[in-house]
Amino acid sequence: MRRPWFALVESNTTGTGRDFAEAARRQGMRPVLLTRAPERYPYVAELGLDVRPVDTTDEEAVLAACRDLGSDGLAGISSSSEVFVRVAAAVGRSLGLPAPDPGAIALCRDKAETRRHLARHGVAVPEFFACTTPAMVEKAVAELAEPAVVKPSQGTGSQGVRVCDDPAAAGWWARRLLHGDGVPAATTVLVEREIRGPEYSVEVIDGTVVGITAKHVGSRPYFVETGHDFPARTSGPRGAALRSTTLAALRAVGLTTGPAHVELRLDGEEPCLIEINPRLAGGLIPRLVGRALGRDLVSEVVAQAAGRPSPTPDARPERCSSIRFLLPGEGTVASVSGLDLARSGRHVDEVVCTVSPGMRLEVEHSFKDRRGHVISVADRPEDAVAAAEHARGCIEIAMS
């Protein structure tokens, strides 16, 4: 009998998508990608991955595709894309496979419903309004009487997220969101009070905190993530508060199995929950966790979805890891320099640049603006941070 299948419902185009397929292979399974557009994923050809064309927005179609995989059997099903984690979980449960609660995932995917639910359960969230017209958005910002974050109620990767300083600016941005003008179209717009304290994410597996990530965000009015540090320097009461708020939120929404990436900001010294992502972190945070703790979170999620024991973490001292992204801006790439210099830096573990001269780049003010990264690993957090910052500074992407 051949190795059992492991189904991947679509994938993220950057970050851990490839890692999921490779983890399934390491665990003796055959990854198969269920997708509407295999050309979106360069790693499919690189890995010689099996592909099944299917309308992945249709739960019944995905279920039928899984049943059609044949006598070798399906060991598990998952997705590295937030958009498809609910479908993967629902199909997994229909087939009697281990999977998180699809209802909890659906709740977390709708940021307005998540806010309402958490507020009813006493979890601190920003003051917010769910709006369906620009006029409603303008009224909400006027009522807040301070800068507000205006974003789609369902979205990911900072797409369509912008702080607006007054009702007129908020109404203009809402019109763009609702009409899909240069951003993914939204049906509901979330308006919330801007929380300006430091941002963190708490990484969770099966209701247990793996660690806390310090997040770096670009300049207003957008929220493009420019880097991360793991583990964050949050010992004492701050770390305890971040952890307890996170676990209370996950219990409230019922997401107690599978991965979760929970984002919070400090409002003064009190954590305020921004969103619950029912998936592993993006932004290559799982790689930082691996470098720092010796834990392969992708392999853990794949093993869990297949009902297998989690891989044993590497037996070594804990370390610190940082990532900084390359954000070159808009235009045509004239030259790329400094990559070898960046790689030669002390504590630098990985340098990736995805652009080359002649490429035309556009800025979307989201995760799509990241054109590469540097990762550092060191014994002390300050050394990891300094190394990543220095390596990023060595790289110059000149635009014309």
Rank of each mutant, 00 (worst) to 15 (best):
A64I: 06
G282A: 10
L327P: 07
L250A: 06
L118V: 01
A135P: 03
R26M: 00
V44T: 12
V253D: 10
E59L: 15
K151H: 13
V210M: 07
A45D: 08
G160S: 10
K151M: 13
F6G: 01
D379K: 03
R162T: 06
P31G: 10
A140I: 07
E59Q: 15
G92T: 00
E389T: 11
F84Q: 03
R392L: 07
A45M: 04
A260V: 04
R360I: 09
P313G: 08
A391V: 11
A61R: 14
F128M: 01
E275G: 04
V298F: 02
G207R: 02
P231Y: 07
D58A: 15
S81R: 04
A75L: 02
I397D: 02
C320S: 09
P259Y: 00
R220L: 13
V262H: 15
I395C: 04
I274L: 15
G73Y: 06
G254Y: 12
K151L: 06
E143H: 11
F223W: 07
I195H: 09
K215T: 06
T16S: 14
E364L: 09
S81I: 05
V32Q: 03
A232K: 05
V189N: 00
S201V: 05
R26H: 05
A249M: 14
N277D: 14
R196W: 10
L8N: 02
A106T: 13
D206K: 08
P98Y: 09
R109V: 07
L273F: 13
L341R: 15
R26L: 00
D50V: 01
E362Q: 04
F367M: 02
H365W: 09
R371C: 12
Y200E: 02
A398F: 10
C131V: 07
G92V: 00
V217P: 06
H373I: 08
A65H: 02
L33D: 01
L288C: 10
V217G: 09
P100E: 02
S244D: 11
G122S: 12
P286G: 06
L95A: 08
E396F: 05
P38A: 14
L69S: 07
I77Y: 01
A170Q: 02
A106G: 14
H365P: 03
A24M: 03
R2D: 05
A387I: 03
C394P: 06
F6N: 04
T246P: 13
V87P: 00
A90R: 03
A315T: 12
P53L: 14
E364P: 00
V9G: 02
G211V: 07
P198C: 07
G290Q: 13
F20H: 04
A292D: 05
I205K: 01
E143S: 13
G157A: 13
I274M: 15
R25G: 08
